[in-house]
Amino acid sequence: MRPFQYTRAPSLAEASNLTAGENTLAIAGGTNLLDLMKLQVETPGQLADINRLGYADIEDTDDGGLRLGALATNTETAVHPRVRSDYPVLSRAILAGATQQLRNKATNGGNLCQRTRCFYFTNIDQPCNKREPGSGCGAIDGIAKLHAILGTSDQCIATYPGDMAVALSALGATVEISGDKGERSVPVRDFHCLPGDTPWIENILERGEIITGIVLPAPVGGTQIYRKVRERSSYAFALVSVAAIIELTDGKFSRADLAFGGLAHKPWHDPRVGECLLGQVPSDALFDKAADILLEDARGFGENDFKIPLTRRTLHAVLSQATEDAA
């Protein structure tokens, strides 16, 4: 690990000041950042430790929703009674990721900001436009099994690796952000970016901005499912994952909030997929239509071609299961 200065931020304002400077990164749980520092993928000159600033509570909001502190751990969130009861898709998504040891340390804010696990990004001997702009993308013609099939660019085909944010996207959660210019709230669906020509920009956080919380809207009815398909049954990143909140009224879809992991540089939410289900009676043909819309612009890169049929089948399985559960 390269030498760095360590500073304990005494306040949120000071954390903003520190991280507004070039080459200073905030550290919370550190499970991803320290790993990347050991690999010299990240080489900050200074770490601003934000762990003891508060923002670790999980509390009810006035409108019946729930605010998850940015510094609450993934475990504290997944096992919280209200998350388990009212937002089971979120508990399931968190529990499907990483290991107990990592979830015990990883924070909600840090989880949103985790970096891709693309092999070319984490290996400094390889080209990577995300890590070293202009150096090229090794994955496009290389090892691309984990890589994206939607929203890619000729610069980058990396995926956002997390599970939690996929559930948050389906739930329509909001990220609360504080910075030197004040506070702002951004829907999780708009938090992460597609790679485009700037693959090093992964989310909308600006320098000096710190995530303080994630707000879940008031719970809705229906069935919640998180289905994760991976190469082994524990401690592996998603090849494809589906977060679904499905409700049927009089035998027809009255709610279909869907988000997908493992497919893109961000949790994938295409409103047209849910909309095509609304008011319709569940059927194989309908599920195929939803998959057609989702995968309209899908493109494989050789090793990950399988993700296109896998996504279709996983969506089909989730919708079938949700329909049975709701019946």
Binding site: G30, T31, L34, D35, K38, Q100, Q101, L102, K105
Partner: peptide, 23 residues
């Protein structure tokens, strides 16, 4: 030394974590 194997697991304030991935 990368949080993948768990050989470094210890309890911090009663909670298990990977001691390699924390300062």
């Amino acid at each position: 030394d990368h949080g993948q194997c768990g050989a470094c697991t210890v309890l911090v304030n009663g909670v298990r974590i990977n001691s390699c991935l924390t300062l």
